Computed example of a mutant assay.
Amino acid sequence: MTFKKINRDRIIRFLKFSVHLFQVIYEKLTSGDKDYFLPFKYDHIQHYYGKDCLDIGAGTGRFSLYLQDQGHTITPIDVVDKAIEEIDLDIFDGQNINKADKSFSTSIFMFVLHHTDTQVELLKEAARVTRDYIIVAEDIVESRLDKMFGNIHLNTSPWAKGNNSFRSKKEWIELFSKLNLELVEINDIPIHIYPIYPVNRTIFVLKPI
């Protein structure tokens, strides 16, 4: 392969990335409700979502409402009510989930755990109230660049921030193992899906043992 061809290929990739970035920025500015991660959060793993789901850290409530529209019964909880959708949100203390053992078929943490320092307590509580699967989506810190973007995210996010809340993929897997959470499936979200905030992201499907 010649030097010119290598440069040309890089230019083409850069132009394609730039076009995609422009599209994402445009859509973000003109429509704040698009979920770029939806295929990974739901479509690719929908068979792990049971009839009754607990959405821990429901945030705006958009994903809870989406799951409800798909036919699931949703119980959304969060430490503060910032829902912009019409959902019946329960407020909790961020550590103790006031639900009976094995109340839900599926519990969900959608990009929530990096906003808290009580990750262990929350995962233990999720394991207690869940019959089948726990789905965790997280920003992954594997490089200095990931850490830099993560810090920017935490300092500009309207949600709470943990002091040492980001982990590498290996560190998450080790934590799940210590908590007796079996890793059933793991899916990486390509960085280019959301280039405004280009960090590694992974969705873990877990089963309480």
Results as ranks from 00 to 15, higher is better:
K5D: 01
N7I: 05
D9Y: 11
R13W: 03
F14C: 08
F17Y: 11
S18M: 04
S18Q: 07
F22Y: 07
V24H: 04
V24I: 09
E27L: 14
E27N: 10
L29W: 02
S31G: 07
K34Y: 08
Y36E: 04
Y36N: 09
F37Y: 13
P39H: 06
P39T: 07
Y48K: 03
Y49N: 01
I56K: 02
I56T: 01
G57I: 02
A58C: 13
A58H: 08
T60H: 07
R62Y: 01
R62F: 03
R62T: 05
L65F: 02
T73V: 12
P76S: 08
I77D: 06
D78S: 08
D81R: 05
K82P: 07
E85R: 14
L89V: 14
L89I: 15
D93N: 15
G94D: 10
N96Q: 15
N98I: 15
A100G: 15
D101L: 13
F104C: 10
F104N: 11
S105L: 15
T106Q: 10
S107C: 13
M110Y: 14
M110F: 15
V112F: 12
L113I: 09
L113Q: 05
H114W: 13
H115F: 09
E121P: 02
L123H: 03
L123M: 02
E125P: 08
A127G: 11
R128C: 01
T130F: 02
Y133G: 00
V136E: 00
I140A: 00
V141S: 03
S143Y: 00
S143N: 02
R144K: 10
D146T: 00
K147T: 01
K147E: 05
K147R: 03
F149L: 10
N151H: 05
H153C: 01
T156A: 04
W159P: 00
W159A: 09
K161P: 04
S165N: 02
F166S: 00
S168P: 02
K169T: 06
K170Q: 13
L175G: 08
S177R: 14
N180G: 11
N180V: 12
E182C: 10
E185R: 15
I186V: 15
I186D: 09
D188P: 11
P190E: 07
I193L: 14
Y194F: 15
Y194N: 12
I196Y: 07
I196R: 05
Y197I: 12
P198K: 11
R201Q: 11
T202I: 04
V205A: 03
K207Q: 04
K207M: 01
